[in-house]
Design a protein around this nucleic acid. Sequence first.
DNA 1: CGGCTCATTGACTCAGCTCAATATCGGTGG
DNA 2: CCACCGATATTGAGCTGAGTCAATGAGCCG
Lengths: 246, 246
Amino acid sequence: MGGRRSGIGESQIVETLRAHPLFRGVPLEDLMELIRAGTWRTWPAGHFLFLEGDSAEGLYVLLEGYVKVIQTDAAGQEAVVQMAGPGEPLGLIALFADQPYPASAQTMAPCRTLWIPGAVFREFLLQHPAVALRILHLLAERLHEAHRRLLEVSVLRVERRLARVLVRLAGRLGRRTAEGIELALPLSREELAELCGTRLHTVSRLLNRWQRAGWVRLGRRRIVLRQPHALVALAEELEGPRGLGS
Amino acid sequence: MGGRRSGIGESQIVETLRAHPLFRGVPLEDLMELIRAGTWRTWPAGHFLFLEGDSAEGLYVLLEGYVKVIQTDAAGQEAVVQMAGPGEPLGLIALFADQPYPASAQTMAPCRTLWIPGAVFREFLLQHPAVALRILHLLAERLHEAHRRLLEVSVLRVERRLARVLVRLAGRLGRRTAEGIELALPLSREELAELCGTRLHTVSRLLNRWQRAGWVRLGRRRIVLRQPHALVALAEELEGPRGLGS
DNA sequence: CGGCTCATTGACTCAGCTCAATATCGGTGG
DNA sequence: CCACCGATATTGAGCTGAGTCAATGAGCCG
């Protein structure tokens, strides 16, 4: 799988890590130890940091770029379990649950990562319990998010789920343009489908319906929200069993 | 909400906690501090330890009994997010993400809990990073489980999801009887439905179909798996888009 | 230009939801 | 002990959201 050790000096990594909220307050020399034990890499878009089932020897910290984390079932059906952006650690589950990677991580854009051997990182956490608490914070939030999505997939219709996914993505990765909010990273219809637990056809149909209504503008791997409020309304609207009609 | 401070002596709690894998290796006197800062309670079945949205001042450790953790959406639809058994901590997300409880916890049977103030527990973790690592382990496993369920709900049919839920429950809470494996705690059809993201009607229909096939025997809040292998087969069987027929 | 990936759209099907009615269990009070 | 009640469960009928199958279209790269 792609990725080369890069020649760029350490100073840049050091600065990135020092600025990282996870490592706030950690003495510089302890950080240096982490960095020296680890490996810095760059990745082109579309490559896999790791595959579901790979044995996990360490942790990735995504310094730059975007990665999607995918879970696959026995028959090859996929669900996007997480969209990770700059600063996020990847491979936490494998590291702490002490098992092979439970999902695959694929770069969506050119990325830079720092890889840290698991044993080193665990030792580091024992020395820096405050950082452990921050990771607990992070995992707790991810768990919360997963529960929320579980509820949504169990209870909401696709239309509403898709609206929510778009609104959330726009919030996290939206770029303001003259026309509206444009999603900064290019997602295919299929990836969108995997994000909301449906099929690309259904996504395509819904998006085009919304385009006809003037709510969005579509392109190849490109979506602009022209009337975000409409989508928000759709996303939040109350819906008991048997909706209130649209 | 029910629950009274119980009069039973501390010695029993101490023993329970000392035997708890989470606290292995912790000096007795540190444990005592936790216990003294905390509160021991018993709960009848059907009561709520906490409700979604309540502000969270601490952590529950479930010493005995079973609790279901429920997430509710704006329209009142519910999903069971977790079934907790003896030994499991509850309220971790609220504690670490520093937010109100993101879900409600309802006792399914008479329960005993130890409640520990959040600040005390956080301080305790700073003193005992090894315990923090174990909690990381626990959260990592829960996250993994949540991701697995997310994939299942996104990709599998109800029939298969229900089969999986039953098989898993039987594994965790099954009691061997002459007739087969009986689920130890009484779940209504509706609760089962909330566990696999469907409606009670669908659960009822499927279960009765299986009963006719001799795979299960049903009662009011009671299920006996008479031919677990049949359910396992159904649960694991490959299923591409458009199944292979039953 | 040819070939690729990505996207759209139509036609058909059906799993599972909704709506509605009835049945059964278990407990409670007369 | 029986009558009654609420909670739980079963079952039917009908509808529809969304999946499947299939074909075509459109953008992009070598």
